[in-house]
Write a protein that binds this DNA or RNA. Structure first.
Lengths: 216, 216
DNA sequence: AAAAATTTTTAGATTTGTCTAAACTTATAA
DNA sequence: TTATAAGTTTAGACAAATCTAAAAATTTTT
């Protein structure tokens, strides 16, 4: 069994390893809001427990065991987010911190019953896929909104940025999951994108477009 | 704000202080599964934070601030228990350990929304009252089943023992919350009680009867 | 390929909560 | 009222997770 802190490290390493593998000490330190020296200490510990493969100065990779543990935490986090939004009327920008705590509750029965109660959701309120008990994800295909061409259509199915200000901004613009959009113009000057949504036209910056995931 | 451990101490002191006040070091040590020396250390810390009044060798009492903190944890514990039983189909003997973890999740919004979602329950699955946001309990009156006389009638409204074996035993006998019972005989020899319940007659030991709470 | 910059690790200290063993208080009994 | 027992506290140590400062390794630049 892992401690609360160990679980957080595993989860962060998991998320970072999607971007680049092996994961660097400093990258972990930044995400976990701690110092590189503390990360080194923890990596040794996780390595002793065979949750990560760690080579001094070279970074870490999750072992199969570590990866399973990490995915399990991600599963719990995302199920709790669904619960908060669907059952307790939280907004999608309010769920992260609470789910961050709830994800560490240790009870297999609890999480399986919660999954059932929520009717086995496949994605969380940000469109991220929820792995099943065995750690398998349903394949979800999407493109970033900034990659679309003029006249391309699609549905908003996710976001790649989870900060509250960003999510509130999208909410205000009506850019929520499930909404259908069409690209009406791409402004050369700044790369910003003009969209049709709900019959209106709105302009969003390239920076915002980058973090909106679209499926056909 | 209190740590996870501090919260546990406050909760235990609260429960013990109902039985005898001030609360003794050893009583806490036993409940919290630790050594008296560790308790002494923690009492000093809680005293520094003005959560308890602590006099060396004399025991502790919760301050108003400590009592509010403790009741808030009890509130969260009991609301989560209701959630587990009502929404996730946990049995009443399965909820304690999970609620023990859930009670430490820090989010006022979460707990107020949960309360609303559960439609403001007044009691938990064991019949214990759930304090409101301000720490007020609804008055619940009851007598212990072993105090009833022959022909006395009443409804099971609570239990004063929360162990899984005890609760499973009651469940097997059909002695669950809300059930109406009538005392048909009290056996002098061992103090055991014969009850009518659902048209059947059953015999329960005095020890079991002591922990069943009855209201008229 | 040596110098400079960046990244990472080590060494030693700190905090929280725990422990054992010994010392001290209070309560009980002879 | 002294002796004994029970309960509590102190002193000193330890494990987990963190930190700072300095040393070491790696990468980048010149």
């Amino acid at each position: 069994m892992q401690s609360y802190t160990e679980e957080n490290y595993l989860k962060i390493i998991y998320h970072l390893s999607v971007i680049s593998n092996p994961v660097q000490t400093n990258a972990i330190a930044e995400k976990i809001q701690t110092k590189a020296a503390s990360v080194t200490d923890m990596l040794k510990k996780l390595s002793d427990k065979e949750l990560v493969d760690y080579v001094k100065y070279q970074g870490v990779t999750l072992t199969e065991k570590g990866k399973l543990a990490a995915i399990n935490i991600v599963r719990k986090h995302r199920l709790w987010e669904v619960f908060l939004v669907e059952k307790l009327n939280f907004k999608w920008d309010e769920v992260h911190d609470v789910a961050e705590e709830l994800e560490h509750i240790k009870s297999t029965l609890l999480i399986e019953r919660l999954d059932e109660f929520l009717e086995f959701p496949k994605v969380d309120p940000h469109g991220d896929p929820i792995p099943d008990q065995h750690g398998n994800f349903a394949a979800i295909s999407f493109v970033k909104l900034n990659r679309l061409k003029v006249n391309d259509k699609g549905t908003i199915t996710g976001v790649s940025e989870h900060s509250s200000p960003f999510l509130k901004h999208l909410e205000k613009l009506g850019l929520t999951l499930g909404k259908k959009i069409e690209v009406s113009e791409i402004i050369d000057f700044d790369g910003s994108v003009e969209l049709s949504i709900d019959g209106n036209k709105i302009n969003i910056s390239r920076e915002v477009a980058k973090h909106i995931l679209i499926s056909k």
